[in-house]
Design a binder for these strands. Sequence first.
DNA 1: CTCATAAAGCAAATATTTTGCGTTTGTGTT
DNA 2: AACACAAACGCAAAATATTTGCTTTATGAG
Lengths: 189, 189
Amino acid sequence: MPIKEAVRPGGRSARVQEAVHQAVRELQAVKSRDELTVPQVAEHAGVTPSTIYRRWGNLAELVADVSVERMRPDDDPVDTGTLAGDLQAWGEQYLEEMTSVPGQRALNDVMASADNGRRERCCRYSESLMATLRERALSRGEAAVPSLDRLVDGVVAPMTYRLLYDRESATAANLRRWIARALAVEDVD
Amino acid sequence: MPIKEAVRPGGRSARVQEAVHQAVRELQAVKSRDELTVPQVAEHAGVTPSTIYRRWGNLAELVADVSVERMRPDDDPVDTGTLAGDLQAWGEQYLEEMTSVPGQRALNDVMASADNGRRERCCRYSESLMATLRERALSRGEAAVPSLDRLVDGVVAPMTYRLLYDRESATAANLRRWIARALAVEDVD
DNA sequence: CTCATAAAGCAAATATTTTGCGTTTGTGTT
DNA sequence: AACACAAACGCAAAATATTTGCTTTATGAG
């Protein structure tokens, strides 16, 4: 067995997982979603198909697992000085990412997972980011900072909705409107 | 004719489609999602597997097709006399439907479809319903009727978001809040 | 270092999906 | 009403994918 590279960390499981994830990423760059098969991924990863089946169950779960990684925000959100600015900056980047071809595929793959937990995890990312921006605004002493729920309902939800069902409307201009509305507090609770 | 989404209206096709849909519904009542297989559905419907594969491609698309039907609102929305009331009445019923076990499965099945068109169609239902309620409010002469977009962003999007990612929050109480906010017009556009 | 355990490999057994080809059945035309 | 045409289906063989029982190997604990 030719070893591709020095395998330092973790156990064998970790190595296999990484090899398989890597194989999926590489193959996805070349093949369309429904040309991808488990045996193919297995071979490319230097692994037996049964390993993949036992560990992930099926292709849908595997690609979902890979895509959920891809969606984790890697760097800290930029600080523009105001909550509105921070939201807009983050949102625009997120929209751009998710309307791209690979972004859309990742979104689809995650949504196709039978495992609700996986989907939820993916969206916790956005929520915890909202919480971060909100804390930041509070510590800056901004007035009228909306509740977390209001940010989620007012900004994340419409964004997600449009990304999933109406890509045309997932634009920076609309984002600006969602943010403006969410920040117009005068609460009705 | 590049894309064929419409099945031949009258004849054998329609009969086969109905038989297959029916078979899926009956089997789904008894078996969990991943016990369901194409050959099984085919037999139960008195049809050859290849027919199903050629027509729907795979099991995921088939069950999505069935579920999307299930989600079409069957009866006209009740008229409570006010837009707020109509929204609340419709929303509560919708939430109840979609948080039920079969409702959640239908939702999952639709989301798992690789065919974006199918997902979109499913959400057009809610949008056109919003349009209906809105027209009704206008013809009643209600003041401050929000735009369609605002209704979608303010009510449908949060509802959908919570149904998909945070079932606990998909409650009638929250619905009331979403509606109240959406109706507090003072627009910022 | 040895042992127990969990995960992976291997290969045979199943199950599924795909495909070529002949037949049936609506649809539109004369 | 009869005809031609094409879409959709059935059938069955071939190709793939998935499952499963058993063996082997790595890892971590004692």
